[in-house]
Nucleic acid binder design. Structure first.
Length: 430
RNA sequence: GCGGCUAUAGUUCAGUGGCAGAACGCCGCUCUGUGGCAGCGGAUGUCGUGGGUUCGAACCCCACUAGCCGCCCCA
């Protein structure tokens, strides 16, 4: 019989790696809490329509990467509705914001989420079909200040803090403004017009993009095309006064907080809902990500709530690729020091097993991490096992039980000491 | 979705048509309460899966699957 395997693009996460995942998530929760964010958990699947309207029919995500199926109807005559595994979480959060009337509080909503997302792409290092995102959204009615540049800067400053606290080295923040929902179409038209006479001289990709998605021409890395691209209209020249002012305020606030950034007029993002500020954090080559070097991305989405049938609720948010963050931390840390248990108890002979378990119970209740060996192990085997698992080993044999004085071996120090049982927990904690 | 590379022991890999290998790791013994060193011994395995060519296939051919790299795109 063929052995069963995790499906392509999905994977199991095992110890000790999961300890790193927990550290990343705990750091996110701790940092986000300091900025007033609360956790939201939305369903893993939603109606297909939510993503079609929210993310955009024409995006790659919606047009070819979603896991979509038709749910069973309630009766033969019913047609089941089309459902989709969420490919991102912002649309779900905004849907929940509308559905639960969170606008009515009049307050700014600051929500974060941690969870798996699903996209049917070709798997690659740093890109999986089930991948994890840690994200956050700040949104609310305009009178809550949700459209203020202060919020953009606060979110970016929080991200910088988060990455620093985790110890991510060499991150780079790329920043741009793609303008309001009226600026962007004007710019795209100008871009098309400017591309028409020159695109024939560009690479194949660009010729295609000039038709399908002119903004992405700006992303081209082909050396020969760079001069042509530099001569194209700049988005900055198409921003209305309000958008220009907004962008200037974001930059000024970042400067005041000492958050380094690079303005990249060519930074365009693939989701339809972005307006004004867009950003991306990347890590340098050699950080374990190959070409998928974007650790996280995000931006402002002032019109998303209305696109989903809700009230006007400007917002800004981001999504961190947790898988990529983990890969980066692993690559940058090299071989992480293995976390060892406080102590390993080695009973001498199976007759000592029950006593060993009782001692383990006592020490565990005292807050120590403990593994218990088995009396059928020879002492040599106990030493070998203990050295791999724990920092210390307690020998529990006839002498020790009789005298109440235990033998404790410290592997790092290479020292062996006698400790009265009553003092054991205190000594091991020290 | 497209192109390229790869798949052999737990791991890293060698083996390019003729007995399935090395290193590390693992297990045992030397050594029944003192490991890490050493010596000796042992097990490593559907050679990714399924077909084909051949007297004979890990090796050549085809298909499939998976991983990696690049593209597309994105986190």
């Amino acid at each position: 019989m063929a052995t069963l395997k995790a499906v392509r693009g999905t994977r199991d996460l095992l110890p000790p790696e999961t300890a790193l995942w927990n550290r990343v998530e705990a750091t996110a929760r701790a940092v986000f809490a300091r900025y007033g964010f609360g956790e939201i958990r939305t369903p893993i699947f939603e109606t297909t329509e939510l993503f079609a309207r929210g993310v955009g029919e024409e995006t790659d995500i919606v047009s070819k990467e979603m896991y979509t199926w038709e749910d069973r109807g309630r009766a033969d005559s019913d047609k089941g509705q089309s459902l989709t595994l969420r490919p991102e979480n912002t649309a779900g959060v905004v849907r929940a914001y509308i559905e639960h009337g969170l606008a009515d509080s009049g307050l700014l909503q600051k929500l974060f989420y941690i969870g798996p997302q699903f996209r049917r792409e070709r798997p690659q290092r740093g890109r999986y079909r089930q991948f994890w995102q840690i994200g956050a959204e700040v949104l609310g009615p305009a009178w809550s200040g949700s459209d203020s540049a202060l919020r953009d800067a606060e979110v970016l400053e929080m991200l910088a803090t988060f990455l620093d606290e985790l110890g991510v080295k060499g991150w780079r923040l790329a920043l741009n403004s793609v303008g309001s929902s009226t600026d962007r179409p004007r710019y795209v038209e100008a871009l098309k017009a400017a591309l028409a006479p020159v695109k024939a001289g560009m690479c194949e990709n660009c010729q295609r993009r000039a038709e399908t998605n002119p903004l992405r021409v700006l992303d081209c890395k082909e050396a020969e095309d760079q001069a042509t691209i530099d001569a194209l209209p700049k988005i900055a020249d198409y921003l209305d006064d309000a958008s220009r002012e907004h962008f200037a305020l974001v930059k000024a606030a970042l400067d005041a907080c000492g958050v380094a950034y690079v303005v990249e007029p060519r930074l365009v993002r693939g989701l339809d809902y972005y307006t004004r500020t867009t950003f991306e954090f990347t890590v340098p080559d050699g950080s374990g990500l190959g070409t998928q070097n974007a650790l996280l991305g995000g931006g402002r989405y002032d019109g998303l709530s209305e696109m989903l049938g809700g009230p006007k609720a400007p917002g800004i948010g981001f999504a961190i690729g947790e898988d990529r963050l983990i890969l980066t931390l692993q690559a940058q840390a090299g071989e992480a020091a293995e976390k060892k248990l406080d102590v390993f108890i080695a009973p001498m002979g199976v007759a000592r097993n029950a006593e060993a378990l009782r001692l383990a119970q006592e020490l565990r209740r005292a807050g120590l991490s403990v593994e218990v060996g088995d009396g059928f192990f020879r002492l040599k085997k106990s030493f070998e096992a203990a050295d791999k698992l724990a920092r210390r080993m307690i020998i529990l044999g006839e002498d020790e039980v009789a005298s109440g004085i235990l033998t404790v071996k410290d592997f790092a120090a290479g020292e062996q000491t006698k400790v009265p049982r009553s003092e054991l927990a205190a000594v091991l904690r020290g």
